[in-house]
Structure formats: structure tokens, C-alpha cells
Design a protein around this nucleic acid. Structure first.
Length: 591
RNA sequence: GCGGGUGUAGUUCAAUGGUAGAACACGAGCUUCCCAAGCUUGAUACGUCAGUUCGAUUCUGAUCACCCGCUCCA
């Protein structure tokens, strides 16, 4: 009867089109020609995003005893970004390969040896031309023909289709140049000359205060997490919480992305939902509980245990976040990528990317990192303020330890530190740290689940988007579009329709039902057009239920059906006869 | 930022150096109308700015945005 259609137009384009047509997402500043990398949410998009945001906030803090909320400003003291490392890592000098535009950090170019070959340009049989001069390093021992082949290949892959086949590209006016040794002016991979070093600042700079001098420079935050670390001590001191506990925050963040792309997936302004969950260092757990629980496949992650170290907590949060994604209907499109030691930042112990299947590929939705005490220690160092907390239970347990037991803990830590390739602590530093620990003081370690709200919204839209071809009674084929959104996040929960709009009794009854529902659920009233069209309109925006007031409702078919309505399900179109007095409860139990 | 592509009603697409058209969607109306039905009827577009030209949506240039690569990790 129905079958999924083949994509003649790419699915992503259909989704973008639907989003605009029905008021989910518009291009920013469209009447002025747009604005790169930023998008606005229309009426339905705003509802959808709010539902997702609320669901996250509810599960992350309101339904938990151990997580508190925070709502910090986008603007902060710029010293925060120096401490977090963003000023350094987001402002590297970069140089671009003149042939392929691949970028390398100016201070990370491996010196190259070889002979410089110059060309005035290139052209291909297709009529395509590379109009500028190029210089490429022929490496020692590289045969001239294989070198030329390599250059043609690089040109072809960068120019794309217009240049045609690599072998049909002609290199113009070849001249042999200087022999260079240990030069940092050529791209290590391609051998092509590098352009000038240019700063690549991915943070959005702004001025705080009307004078706008260099002294007033600060940045729009590139992530929400740093405010949590900066306010960690205030939250701890004002909330009567004990480690382990978390602080979560939802808010806008800004990055000057080199290439915003894939609709809202990579934007320059986006909304993050981040949790920093603070835990005791494993050594503290060992002192208090006698041992640290080891993770193994199938371990019980249903609820926190006192002997959990960072690894169990990390697994726990991956599990919690997975359950969340299942609750909004994304369970079956998730994938996980466990970063390898080579992927990890030096301060991170583990990081899992939760990936989701999008029409343009499988991409990251959320990252869950175990970051040790890196962030708090950075802010402690840069601010000069102690961010240590005092743990009474730890102090009591440590006091009871024998000196031998203490020394054993220190030795074990020393062994792991010396095994590290870089960043390992010295023995003096380790002993100083344990001295504070045995007195009950430490910087909490952190597990950081960090999710993108805009990505989540795009993910649920992409997952929900479904089209099929249907033949109507006359054999004419039409495309049916349904957004199969999970009812809990659908922007509109129920549509209310009088079967006919020219019958005042039906309309007034329908308005009554609408008034009854709209206080409790986001309800949409529609009387225009045929009933089937109204169902279809709601299907397209993902409304899970439709309520129709018909002549039976008015009692025409006898008293039994009086004051009952047809409730029609979006997925499958099944219909139920429900009493108006039961309607709100009936719907609420299914959302 | 660099290279390639694209830009016409709300959407998806036509055509044209001189008056821009369709389908669907949208508004109004008729119809005891349960899955985008039918009939009547209405509104709406050449991304922006220059140049060539008597005249540009069409040709040229610039610019902006989007898509695909380089990038990136919410």
C-alpha cells in the first residue's frame, strides 16, 4: 500500500525546506540576505527546542538530588579563557597550503628538504584553469614523473569536478628552483608552499564597556562549562551539597567556525546543555571505602555507589545520557565512539562521543569526558583562589589509616605518574597532594556530559522525517510527509477539529474542547479545509493526536455516543472514541 | 579564508534582452467532508549592488547567503 520513497531530492534539503515552510527554522536575517552560520527558530521550532531543553533540565537536575542548576552570563572576565586554554588553542597562528588550502599550525611545521619546482599555473582538457603560480617541493629521491603525477592529483582533488581527470591536467612553465633544506615554508604532506601565517581566532571577540579599547576586550563564551568551574566554590558554599554532586547549565555559546555547515549542525551561535559532575579523586574513594569499584561489562549502573571511582561514574553518565536519548526517541540511531589515548586531550582520562545518524552522516551529538581535576586546578592556579573542598568523611577515614597504608597509596600513585609520557607529577608534588588529601582536602574530579541543543533538535527532526508515496482513489500518486516525533517533545500535542466548519453546533463544541485542552497541552485548533487535509497538516508538523468533533458528538446517533469524540493517532491513523470528560487524561497518559 | 556549484512566489520547478508561468501550499466562499477530495475565487517571486544597453530576471563584475570539499568535535 505504501512504501518509503527514493530520495530524488536529498533528504536533508527536504528537511530544510519543511523546516522553513512550517515554521521550525529560518535563516537568520533572511530579508537582508542572511547572516553566515546562524539560524532562527520559528514558532514550532521554538516549542520543539523548549521541550528538549525542559526535558534535559528535568532529568538532569529536577529529578535528581545531586545536581544543581546554574545560569551564568555569556560575558565573563577574559582571564577565564586564558585559564581554560581557549585563548591559546583558539588563537593559533595558522598557515595554509597554497595548493590544497590545508592548514597547519605555524609553529608545528615539520622542516622539509627538497628541490622547489615552480609552475606558472595549470590547465585541463575541460577548459578549467588554475590561474596562479605555484611552487611545490620535490622531495629527495622522488622521481620527476611521480612528482608531477602527485601535483596533478593534488590540483585535481582540490579543484573538484571542473578540473576533470588528474592525468588530463597540464602543468605550465615548469622551472627548477632552489634546493632547500630544513625549510618550514612548505606543507609537510603536500610539499606546496605555505602562505603567510595568520591568526585563526575561533572565539568571538567583543568589547565590554563603551570605550572599546584593547583593555576592554573579552569574548563571547565558546562553551558554557567554564562558568560552572568559575562558580564552583560559590555553588558548593551556598547549597549544602557534598561531593559527589553536579552543576548543570543551559545556554548560548559562540564560535567563529571556519565553515558552518549542515544546516544548524555546525553554527556560530549555538546552545549547549552541560553538566559538570564533581566526584572524589579515586584515592579518596579508596581511603573511605577501602577499594574502588572496577568497571566490567554488565556492571550495575542503576544507581551511584559509595565505592565508585571516575571510571564507574563515567560509565554511569554514559548510561544515563543514553536513557535520555531513548526517552526522546533517538535510541535506535545512536552510536558511540570511545576516544583512543591518541585522540584524548592530555588532561582527559576518557571521552565518549555519542553520535547520531544524520542524513549527511553520523556526527557527534554529545561528548562525555572524564577530565580529572584539570579545570578546577587551572582556575585555582590562574585566579589564585583555593577551590579545594573539605571532606569530613575523608578526613575521618584517613586518620584511621596506618602510615604503611598511606605510603602504599602514595607509591601506587607515584608509579602511575611516572608511567605517563607527559604531564606526570613529580614525587614532591604527589606527596604534597596526599598531605592535603589525608587532611580531607582535595580538588574534585569531574565528569562532563556536554550536549548540543540545536544538534539535538536537528537530530529529532531528521529522525522523525518520514515520507511515502500514496495513491489516492483515482490512482494519482502523492507524497505524504509525517514527522514522527516522540509525543513528549512534539511542539503541538493535539489538534482539535470540527468535522465541518459551516455547522455552528460543531464549531462551538469544538471550541469548547479546545478551551478544555489548551490550558494543559499545547493544542491547535483548525477548521479550514477538508478533515483529511487538516490531519495531514498536523502530521507534517508531528502532532501526535487529532480530535474531531462530529455529529455523533452532538448526539445525532443516539445518547451513547453523545459527548464523545474521535481521537486519531498520527502514526498509523488508528481512531478511538473517547468521552470529552476523559479526553485530557486519555491524552496526558500517552504523552 | 581558499577552490567548485547554486540563487525566480511560502515550497518545488519552468521560460525569456522588452508583458515572468505552473504545481503544491496559503487566504475567502460553497459542500453531513474521517485521512492532502471537488468547485468558485484571491494574494504572492527574478538574493543584493553596480556596469553594458533605448531597455537586464536574462549578459558582465562585485557582494551576500546556501550546498560540496579543506576545517571541526556541541
Amino acid at each position: 500500500m505504501s512504501s518509503p520513497i527514493k530520495a530524488e531530492t536529498p533528504v536533508m534539503e527536504k528537511i530544510v525546506s519543511l523546516c522553513k515552510r512550517r515554521g521550525f527554522i529560518y535563516q537568520s536575517s533572511e530579508i537582508y540576505g542572511g547572516c553566515g552560520g546562524v539560524w532562527d527558530y520559528g514558532p514550532l521550532g521554538a516549542e520543539l527546542k523548549r521541550n528538549l531543553r525542559d526535558a534535559w533540565w528535568r532529568t538532569m537536575t529536577r529529578e535528581r538530588e545531586d545536581v544543581l542548576g546554574l545560569d551564568a552570563c555569556i560575558l565573563m572576565n577574559p582571564a577565564i579563557w586564558a585559564a581554560s586554554g581557549h585563548v591559546a588553542t583558539f588563537a593559533d597562528l595558522m598557515r595554509e597550503c597554497s595548493l590544497t588550502n590545508k592548514r597547519v599550525r605555524a609553529d608545528h611545521v615539520d622542516p622539509q628538504d627538497g628541490i622547489v619546482m615552480n609552475y606558472s599555473g595549470a590547465q585541463s582538457a575541460t577548459g578549467w584553469k588554475l590561474p596562479r603560480a605555484i611552487a611545490v617541493l620535490m622531495k629527495k629521491g622522488e622521481h620527476i614523473e611521480s612528482f608531477r603525477k602527485r601535483v596533478r592529483l593534488l590540483i585535481a582533488s582540490n579543484a573538484g569536478e571542473p578540473a576533470g581527470k588528474p592525468e588530463e591536467i597540464e602543468l605550465l612553465d615548469e622551472t627548477k628552483g632552489d634546493t632547500v633544506e630544513q625549510s618550514i615554508d612548505y606543507h609537510p604532506e603536500t610539499g606546496a608552499a605555505l602562505g603567510e601565517a595568520r591568526p585563526f581566532n575561533l572565539m568571538l571577540k567583543t568589547y565590554l564597556g563603551p570605550t572599546a579599547t584593547e583593555a576592554d576586550v573579552t569574548y563571547l563564551r565558546p562553551e558554557t562549562a567554564q562558568a560552572i568551574f568559575a562558580q564552583f566554590k560559590n555553588v558548593f558554599d551556598s547549597s549544602r551539597v557534598k561531593v559527589p554532586f553536579g552543576i548543570c547549565q543551559i545556554g548560548k555559546a559562540f564560535r567563529n567556525e571556519v565553515t558552518p555547515k549542515n544546516f544548524t549542525f555546525r553554527s556560530r551561535e549555538f546552545e549547549q546543555m552541560e553538566l559538570e559532575f564533581f566526584i572524589k579523586p579515586d584515592e579518596a574513594v579508596a581511603i573511605i571505602s577501602g577499594s574502588v569499584a572496577a568497571w566490567s561489562e554488565g556492571a550495575d549502573l542503576s544507581g551511584p555507589k559509595p565505592d565508585w571511582g571516575w571510571e564507574m561514574w563515567h560509565r554511569y553518565w554514559v548510561d544515563q545520557r543514553t536513557k535520555f536519548y531513548q526517552s526522546i526517541g533517538l535510541g535506535d540511531v545512536l552510536e558511540y565512539y570511545w576516544q583512543t589515548p591518541a585522540d584524548l586531550a592530555h588532561y582527559a582520562r576518557a571521552c565518549v562521543d555519542i553520535l547520531c545518524e544524520f542524513p549527511f552522516g553520523t556526527e557527534e551529538l554529545e561528548g562525555i569526558a572524564a577530565r580529572g581535576d584539570f579545570d578546577l586546578s587551572q582556575h585555582q592556579k590562574h585566579s589564585g583562589k583555593s577551590l579545594e573542598i573539605f571532606d569530613e568523611e575523608l578526613k575521618t577515614a584517613a586518620t584511621a589509616l596506618t602510615d604503611e597504608a598511606k605510603e602504599a597509596l602514595i607509591q601506587r600513585r607515584l608509579a602511575t605518574e611516572s608511567a605517563k609520557e607527559k604531564g606526570g607529577l613529580t614525587e614532591v608534588e604527589v606527596r604534597a597532594w596526599f598531605e592535603r588529601l589525608f587532611k580531607g582536602f582535595y580538588l574534585p574530579h569531574v565528569i562532563e556530559p556536554s550536549a548540543g541543543l540545536d544538534r539535538m533538535a536537528l537530530a529529532v527532526l531528521a529522525k522523525a522525517f518520514y515520507q511515502y508515496e500514496k495513491e489516492d482513489g483515482k490512482g494519482k500518486s502523492e507524497t505524504i510527509t509525517i514527522l514522527r516525533l516522540h509525543p513528549s517533545i512534539a511542539p503541538v500535542k493535539v489538534g482539535v477539529f470540527p468535522l465541518l466548519k459551516n455547522k455552528p453546533e460543531l464549531v462551538s463544541k469544538a471550541r469548547e474542547v479546545y478551551q478544555l485542552l489548551k490550558g494543559r497541552l499545547n493544542t491547535f485548533y483548525d477548521e479550514a479545509g477538508a478533515i483529511g487535509r487538516r490531519y495531514a497538516r498536523q502530521d507534517e508538523i508531528g502532532t501526535p493526536f487529532g480530535v474531531t468533533i462530529d455529529f455523533e458528538t452532538l448526539g445525532e446517533q443516539g445518547g451513547e455516543l453523545k459527548d464523545t469524540v474521535t481521537v486519531r493517532e498520527r502514526d498509523g491513523g488508528a481512531q478511538h472514541r473517547v468521552k470529552i470528560s476523559d479526553l485530557a487524561g486519555w491524552l496526558a497518559s500517552r504523552l
